[in-house]
C-alpha cells in the first residue's frame, strides 16, 4: 500500500471513529480519543515485529 493511501486510511478511520462516537451518544469520549491518538504512533512501532529471519538453531 502506498504511503499516501495508507495515511489517508489512518485519517479516515480516525474520523469515522469520532463521527461514530458522536452518533452513538458517546461524544464525551472524543477528547479522550484525541489524547490517546499520539500514543497510537508509539504503540504501532512497538508492536511491529520485523521481517527478519530467525536463526533456527539459536533456539537451542
Amino acid at each position: 500500500m502506498k504511503f499516501t493511501q495508507s495515511t489517508n486510511t489512518y485519517i479516515s478511520t480516525f474520523l469515522e471513529l469520532i463521527i461514530g462516537l458522536h452518533k452513538s451518544g458517546y461524544w464525551w469520549l472524543i477528547p479522550l480519543i484525541i489524547i490517546l491518538l499520539p500514543l497510537s504512533f508509539f504503540f504501532i512501532l512497538a508492536q511491529a515485529v520485523p521481517i527478519v529471519a530467525p536463526f533456527v538453531y539459536t533456539l537451542f
Binding site: 500500500m1 493511501q5 495508507s6 486510511t9 478511520t13 490517546l36 497510537s40 504503540f43
Partner: peptide
C-alpha cells in the same frame, strides 16, 4: 491503539489490496 483500531490498514497491507 497499536493494531486493532487500524485493521483496515493492516488487512490492506497484509494482503496487498486497496482499502
Amino acid at each position: 491503539l497499536g493494531d486493532r483500531l487500524w485493521l483496515k490498514n493492516r488487512i490492506a497491507s497484509e494482503l496487498g489490496v486497496a482499502p
